[in-house]
Amino acid sequence: MNPQNTALVYACIALAGGFGAVLRMFLSDRLDTAGGAPRRIPLGTLATNLVAAFALGWLNSESALALIGRGHLFFALAVGFSASASTFSAFSFQLARMLKFKRINDALAYAILTMSAGAALAWLGMKL
């Protein structure tokens, strides 16, 4: 990649990453609570992580690569949007909080659900 091209790639990633972060914020705000009270499992963070895992899986599938290739659009959607829409920081923070307040069953359920469903959806996306 020449420097100009590299700068454009990073600009695409940053722009798409910003939109991914805003989408994550909206979903977390809407779904992590129910009637103002936090849910036992933060569904907003779970939903964004699972949707993003599926999207990144699909972006790495043969059908997606045939459609969009590995150019700027791929970097914007895969490294920018999909990766930014998902988060490990909020996920690990929520897990650590559950463990801190002895909600062991919630923590286990949340971790297992997130990891297994995330992997399954990424695999499904890659096979489409």
Binding site: A83, A90, G118
Partner: peptide, 9 residues
């Protein structure tokens, strides 16, 4: 931090 970390990758 949300954008810096990633679960999907």
């Amino acid at each position: 931090c949300g954008g810096f970390t990633t679960f999907s990758t």
